[in-house]
């Protein structure tokens, strides 16, 4: 039981990191991406390969994951950032669809649908982190670090410039802000955060395959940010816990034939998503309505 609760807490920390990193884009930068799972996936594959081929050192894996996911996100964002608003959403959607195909087809690297199995338990400088409680602390540490970075940056000049740009791109431009640079930095930061989450996820599951990095996953992460409250520090965390706890609570529904459980859980889950958005459009932690 304890093992199971720890497992759940680890996942919550990892998804917390994911939604906090996506919040940099959506909440602070006004960059609407539905491709966050792609960078989560790049990080997971990178981390898994470091662990399988080199050494299961968590720092090494996280660095490799952050580097690969960060660089790719910046590279992919550069051309797409030239367009605004809905165009960027749809471009990121296209990127997500392409990436899913590439992850499935490049089975030499990703294992395709079969995935990469047998990822060894993590270590740090040779010390084993296999104990679930220790690994949970590592995940929480990464999450705390990400929160600290976001808080620090958003209070500094970078954050202010980014938010100015979110509120009015032309005004920010007129004030002499380097808009493309700001956006690229935000994307890079968010991508690197997703990459680290991916490396942690690879260790946590000891198994990665493309199914964790599909459009559905991207939408889930996005929903965590939006439902919690975009552009707030606590919002993504609230959204993460809620979206993780809700399906869990649904397993309590008594008296259903086992073959219908899946569909009924889904039904309530989807309904909750829609109703929350109707009655709390700014998110649970948000004061003002969304960005546009």
């Amino acid at each position: 039981m304890i093992a199971y609760l720890l497992n759940l807490a680890q996942l919550a920390a990892i998804f917390g990191l994911l939604s906090v990193s996506l919040n940099i884009l959506i909440g602070y930068g006004g960059i609407f991406s539905v491709a966050h799972a792609v960078f989560f996936g790049l990080g997971a594959y990178a981390g898994a390969h470091v662990a399988l081929d080199l050494a299961p050192d968590i720092l090494l894996a996280a660095l490799a994951a952050a580097l690969i996911a960060g660089v790719f996100s910046a590279l992919l964002a550069l051309p797409a950032l030239r367009v605004r608003g809905e165009y960027f959403v749809i471009a990121s959607l296209g990127l997500q669809m392409l990436a899913t195909t590439v992850f499935t087809e490049a089975s030499d690297v990703t294992g395709g649908l079969g995935g990469l199995v047998g990822i060894p338990p993590p270590t740090l400088f040779g010390v084993s982190l296999a104990d679930p409680l220790v690994f949970l602390l590592v995940c929480l540490g990464a999450l705390a670090l990400a929160l600290a970075v976001v808080r620090l940056l958003m209070r500094g000049s970078f954050g202010r410039a980014l938010m100015a740009l979110r509120d009015s791109e032309s005004a920010a431009e007129a004030l002499g802000k380097n808009v493309p640079l700001l956006k690229t930095l935000a994307v890079l930061l968010g991508g690197a955060g997703a990459g680290i989450a991916g490396a942690l996820f690879a260790f946590q599951e000891a198994f990665v395959n493309v199914e964790s990095f599909t459009l559905d996953q991207s939408v889930l992460i996005m929903a965590m940010v939006i439902i919690g409250g975009a552009g707030t520090l606590a919002g993504p965390l609230i959204g993460t816990v809620l979206l993780l706890a809700l399906p869990a609570a649904l397993t309590f529904i008594p008296g259903l034939p086992p073959t219908d459980i899946g569909a009924v859980q889904q039904l309530i889950y989807g309904l909750a998503m829609t109703l929350l958005m109707i009655f709390r459009p700014a998110g649970l932690a948000g004061r003002r309505a969304g960005q546009r």
């Binding site: 609407f32 539905v34 959403v89 939006i226 998503m273 829609t274 958005m277 459009p281 969304g290």
Partner: peptide
């Protein structure tokens, strides 16, 4: 409502 709020709904 934000663009994304509608998306999630």
């Amino acid at each position: 409502g934000a663009f994304f709020t509608i998306f999630v709904a």
